[in-house]
Simulated scan of single mutants.
Amino acid sequence: MRTRTVRVLLVEDDDGDALLVEALLEEARAPFILSRARSLAEAERLLSDAECVLLDLGLPDAHGLDSLHRLLSKPDAPAILVLTGLDDEREGIDAVSAGAEDYLIKGQVDGELLLRGVRYAVERRRADDAQFQLREAKLLAAERSRLERGLLPPPLLKGSDLDLAVRYQPGGQRMLLGGDFYDAVGLPDGSVHAIIGDVCGHGPDEAALGVCLRIAWRALVLAGEPPEKVLRTLDQVLVAERHGEGIFTTACVVTVAPDRRSARYFLAGHPEPLLVVGQQIVDLPKCKVGVPLGVLPDYAWTGVDVPLPPGWQLVCFTDGLIEGRVPGDTDRLGVERLCEILRDQLRRGPDWLDPLIAEVTKLNGGELDDDMAVLLLKDPA
């Protein structure tokens, strides 16, 4: 089996010691590419091309462990083997404690020992890097899980007769956590309040902002605040908590009356919900599409009342559902074609939500580009 060539950087200002290291490597007949630096400054320039550094701690521009600390502080620092004199073994031990892979004593090393030391250092660094990446992945997964629980909580509908279905699908190409969120709350008077929203952008900052807005919305609704005031307060919360100017959020807020025969909805730059009755999509009374949250200070959103016939279903969704691609067309899917797919699925049976999402995903040629959330409210009758 052929041994892989290792790129070694020797940092040594003494020509005699440098020749000794070169001779030892030749003695071991090891496949190395050896380069040399005579100072720490020169080593820093050559560091990115090295897998292992043989570092003498007595350099003209660094003293003691300073050179080790400086090299280890570089991004993606390679494995480092410290070279010490017989009288400096304590310094070698301190170097290992400070982050070096190992130390070797000059004059007590033959070619085979040097070869094993370099290979051990390289493999140990790789193992450490792999463990670090695994820990990072686990931490990111745990953080993502916490954020998703905050964005997509169990609805607070204890004692409510209203049927509710929710779906969430992350953007497949980036696999970054977005800011889509939803929630639903039932109040003692029998009314049910729901929100679905989308913070612009992708990543943990946007997700954290979505969690903040969702929690604020639930608290305001439970406190009995009317939707108009809830939206104005959410706007203030967003402006205070967002991580950069220009960050905005779209939202659709719905209140279903206790008798389940009417609802009021508000739009803050968000797609209009769809009202389904039987196998038909019924036109909603037009609601003024207000500006998104975080755009205009002191903006007043207005809602519209909607009569709900028996057997109604109200579909609220984020724009990830309508921004998928369509084969042979440069335009996005859009609401009109989404309605065509929905009508086809309604004719096929009552369990249409998952097939609808599957068909939209299929037309896109794979996972949707953007996060997608759907909140479906149903007449309990």
Score class of each variant (00 low, 15 high):
Y120V: 04
L25G: 03
V253R: 14
R332D: 06
L346R: 12
C287N: 13
P355R: 11
L104V: 09
V276D: 02
A165D: 13
L376C: 08
T330C: 14
L284P: 14
Q108S: 09
D110I: 01
P297W: 02
Q313F: 03
A381C: 09
V211E: 01
E245T: 08
I341Y: 13
R347P: 06
G278F: 04
L293C: 01
E148A: 04
F317V: 04
G197E: 03
R38V: 14
L71A: 06
D49L: 12
D354M: 07
R124Q: 00
V166T: 12
D344P: 07
I196T: 01
S67H: 11
H193D: 00
Q279T: 14
P350A: 06
L314Y: 03
P258C: 02
A219R: 14
S39Q: 08
A23S: 09
L267D: 00
K158S: 14
D61W: 12
G58K: 15
I247D: 01
G85F: 06
V360G: 03
P310W: 03
D205V: 09
T250A: 08
G269E: 06
G210A: 04
P285I: 12
P226M: 06
D351F: 01
D161K: 14
L47W: 05
G16L: 15
R146F: 08
D344W: 12
D371C: 04
C52P: 10
V185C: 06
R38G: 11
D49H: 12
P273M: 07
A373S: 07
G201S: 05
A30M: 09
L10I: 05
G201K: 13
A18I: 12
A37Q: 10
G269N: 11
K229C: 10
E272I: 14
P154E: 01
L363V: 09
H243Q: 12
L293T: 00
E136Q: 12
R348K: 15
A219S: 10
G172N: 08
K362R: 15
E123N: 10
D13E: 09
P310M: 07
H202I: 08
E12T: 10
P310G: 04
A240T: 04
L308T: 02
R144W: 01
I196E: 01
L86W: 10
C52F: 03
D102Y: 06
D305L: 13
D189G: 05
E27H: 09
D344A: 14
L162V: 07
T5M: 13
E340C: 12
V230M: 10
E91G: 10
Q279H: 15
P307I: 11
D161P: 13
A30H: 05
V374D: 00
G197I: 07
D370M: 07
S39D: 06
L81C: 08
D259R: 11
P327A: 07
P170L: 02
G159A: 08
V237F: 04
Q279A: 13
L275K: 09
V254R: 08
E225T: 09
Y265N: 06
L114G: 05
V289G: 13
I322N: 13
G186Y: 04
V185I: 11
G366I: 05
S73F: 08
V276C: 06
S67A: 15
P271S: 02
L86T: 07
L377C: 02
H202A: 07
A130Y: 00
P60I: 04
G269K: 14
L47Y: 03
D189M: 10
E42K: 13
L284M: 14
